[in-house]
Amino acid sequence: MSGGPADRAVLSAANISMRYRRGGKLSGSEQIQALDGMSLEVRSGEILALVGPSGSGKSTLARCLAFLERPDSGEVGFQGEAVPWEDVLAMRGLRRRVQLVFQDPARAVSPRFTTEQVLREPQQAWQQRASPQRALDWAQLLAEVELDPKVLPMRARSLSGGQLQRLVLARALVTEPDALLLDETFSGLDLSLQAKLANLVLGLVESRGLTCVLITHNSALAEQLADRSLVLSQGRVVDERSAPDASTGGTS
């Protein structure tokens, strides 16, 4: 929030396409066009919602924006520059700047890890002498996501749904990212918990100055939280809506 114009693009996609091969029968490998020439920009500090029916390519887009998957064609940009896919080391560094939080938090943590190991992993995975990292401030991190420190020695998969969701949020914050991608993060939870977590995320975005991409089926939630929504269908952006208060206000 502090530096630069508010509408600078943190993340961008220019005309990206992605196709998956549906393996199976010997004859004719069916192909699925998950992304079909999609372009978008995520501006610094905004909360952008991606809504669309199942299979419209939301998760695929999220993986591309988190630099986890390289699109077949088109370019993905970070802070105005195209991502150097061939440079393995640079990519590893870049991936830390954007964190993807998966839909099912239980599957996003290793069954072998305790909560503490889960939280330590982002630092362990990044053993770079060139850029040493600050020691982890456990108390502050856990307070930030409102997680009880008692869970630290417990096996991560044994936590409750809400605790797990807070855990993966906390883990995503360890690398101190610029942008957070939430892939249907609240959809598995009951309404009151949804509301609590949504508020928590809003608070984090505010306090840390994060840019946030929110993927959801729930357009009501999108309208409530986001500054701007993009509607996806069959791998394309088909509509863009701005939140009422950000533009004219008052239109339903």
Partner: peptide, 11 residues
């Protein structure tokens, strides 16, 4: 997912 998440930490 958890392996993809680890990749996200620059592993």
């Amino acid at each position: 997912d958890y392996v993809q998440a680890a990749r996200g930490f620059g592993a």
